[in-house]
Computed example of a mutant assay.
Amino acid sequence: MRVDPDKRRKDIAQVTIDLVAREGLAAATFRRIAAEGGWSTASITNYFVDKQDLLVWTFQLLSEEGERRFEEAMAASAKDPVPALLTMVPWCPANVRRWKAYLAFWDAAVRDPELASLLANSTSVGMDLLDRLVRRSWPDASDTQPAVELLNATVQGIALQILVDQKQWSEVKIRNILLESHNGIVGRFAAP
């Protein structure tokens, strides 16, 4: 049976994300990924030249998943900003996994210019998504950048706090703080 190369690359990346989320980037060796995915090491080298190639592709997939989830949540809730903002914080197991993997990549990006560039691009896309969310509540805005930057910083700060102390952050608390943050920031900058 012929293997769909794109699907196999995505499957390998998903196993890599799981491993990185659990144990960090150092654990993401071809041997470990192959063992966890039930593949041979050679089958991974068939799709990725080296670990850097795999990590770059995996980070791009992780970012695209986050963007897609934000877009879907925003489309599904025309008036409420919270569902879209929830995609950006670790409030559920899927988001905890994503955030742990993101943090491992962010740590590596401090020392790796290629990953730093990918992270900067991903952050820029995230800021554009937040801009669209802010403009939905503040359609006549000429300059939303200060509000978007503050909302981004707030969401990331909340996310980090949730990750290190999940017991203090119920879903209700997270939803309320995201809504208050969004409305307060937009209200502050939208006020004449």
Rank of each mutant, 00 (worst) to 15 (best):
G184W: 04
R188Y: 14
L179R: 13
W169A: 05
S170H: 09
K173A: 13
A190S: 15
H182Y: 15
Q161S: 02
Q166P: 03
V164M: 04
V164D: 14
Q168S: 13
H182S: 12
R188H: 11
E180V: 07
N183M: 15
F189G: 12
H182C: 13
Q166S: 03
V164H: 08
A159Y: 06
K173Y: 08
N183F: 13
V164I: 04
L179H: 15
N183V: 14
E180S: 07
I174K: 03
L163C: 07
K173Q: 02
E180F: 15
Q166F: 02
I174S: 00
S170G: 07
R175A: 14
K167S: 00
V186S: 07
F189H: 11
R175S: 07
Q161M: 11
N176M: 07
Q166E: 06
I174P: 00
G184Q: 08
V172P: 01
S170W: 03
Q166G: 09
N183P: 14
A190G: 15
A159L: 14
S170D: 11
L160E: 10
W169E: 00
I177G: 01
H182D: 15
N176Q: 15
S181L: 11
G187I: 15
G187S: 14
D165L: 00
V186C: 15
G187M: 12
N176H: 01
W169M: 00
L160I: 08
L163K: 00
V172Y: 08
G184R: 08
V172G: 11
L160H: 10
V186A: 09
H182Q: 13
D165K: 01
Q168D: 12
I177D: 02
N183D: 15
G187C: 08
E180T: 11
V172K: 02
E171R: 03
N176D: 10
G187H: 06
Q166R: 05
L178P: 07
R175P: 04
E171I: 03
Q168H: 11
Q168P: 00
L163R: 00
R175Y: 03
L163G: 04
E171S: 04
V186T: 12
L160N: 01
S181H: 08
L178V: 08
E171D: 07
R175I: 14
E171Y: 02
A159I: 11
W169F: 02
H182F: 13
V172W: 02
L160S: 12
L178Y: 01
N183L: 08
I185H: 01
N176I: 06
A190E: 12
Q168G: 01
K173N: 09
R175F: 10
D165N: 04
Q161K: 02
H182G: 09
L179I: 06
L179T: 03
V186Q: 10
G187K: 03
L160M: 09
E171H: 07
L163D: 03
L178D: 02
E171P: 01
S170Y: 10
N176S: 05
V186M: 14
S170M: 04
V172D: 06
S181Y: 12
S181V: 12
V186K: 10
